[in-house]
């Protein structure tokens, strides 16, 4: 008589979750971005693992931001850019979707170099994405606004002035507001483009600590050219140079034992 192994539901779920965690959340295949003047990204192939902080490192103008913006197709705003290849978000090529593009973009919260609060109140900034999602229940929106402002440690600072214009906040507060706004739409990925470059050391530390907490639930792709930030935060480092990925791997490997001369030079000059 044949005996079949018996799996419990929890065990099966754990296995599925484990399998899911092993599959990359983003897979980039042969991504090229070019303008009339030349190539910005050259045949990029990259797998972004789930629930990790992936740092895109490299000198200014190496294509880090363009790569980041290709992931949620914000390159569409720059009509001079020609994008080809595949960017698979959970298996769906974002470069090929048309009708579902806004929903796909909601999977990726964006944090820019400089905070860009929308020209509305603090409350409406956080509620904005929810309304775009079609959520009309005021209690639900209010709850989400409070939860996400608490999550980024901003609630106590703004709870008495939620209807004030968002641009009345300090730059550090604005950046946290933008993070709360992004988190409110429940993304799976956070795209952060040098999010601390305009911030003072205290605000920088707050954002970095938030990232460490958030990676439990989110995949964070962080663009930076601050080596020390990469060391502090990265689970996986991707070093880029002139539109190419030169090296990638665990920070201990590639930052302490660089294989290429370019990275060695960058680490010396960067430090």
């Amino acid at each position: 008589m044949i005996t079949y192994p018996v799996f419990s539901y929890q065990k099966a779920k754990r296995m599925v979750n484990h399998q899911e965690k092993q599959t990359p959340i983003i897979e980039i295949k042969g991504l090229n971005v070019r303008t009339r003047e030349g190539e910005i990204l050259k045949n990029i192939n990259l797998k972004i693992p789930r629930n990790k902080i992936v740092v895109l490192l490299g000198p200014s103008g190496c294509g880090k931001t363009t790569l980041l913006k290709s992931l949620n197709r914000l390159t569409d705003l720059h009509k001079e850019l020609q994008v080809s290849g595949e960017v698979l978000i959970d298996g769906v090529d974002i470069l090929k979707v048309s009708r579902d593009l806004p929903a796909m973009r909601q999977k990726m919260g964006l944090l820019s170099q400089r905070p860009f609060p929308l020209p509305v109140s603090i409350y409406r900034n956080v509620a904005y994405g929810l309304k775009l999602k079609g959520i009309r229940n005021k209690d639900l929106i209010a709850h989400s606004v409070e939860t996400n402002l608490k999550r980024v440690g901003l609630w106590d600072e703004v709870k008495n002035r939620l209807n004030s214009p968002a641009n009345s906040l300090s730059i550090g507060q604005q950046q946290r507001l933008c993070l709360a706004r992004g988190l409110a739409v429940k993304p799976a990925i956070i795209l952060a483009d040098e999010p601390t470059s305009a911030l003072d050391p205290i605000s920088t530390r707050i954002i970095e600590n938030l990232f460490k907490e958030l990676k439990e639930h989110y995949t964070i792709i962080l663009v930076t050219h601050v080596l020390r930030q990469a060391v502090r935060l990265a689970d996986h480092v991707v070093f880029m140079y002139y539109g190419d990925i030169i090296e990638q791997g665990h920070p201990d490997d590639i930052l302490k034992h660089p294989k290429t001369e370019v990275l060695k030079k960058y680490l010396v000059d960067g430090n």
Partner: peptide, 9 residues
């Protein structure tokens, strides 16, 4: 600012 709005869906 445009990118912020688009990225929120």
């Amino acid at each position: 600012m445009k990118e912020a709005s688009l990225s929120l869906g």
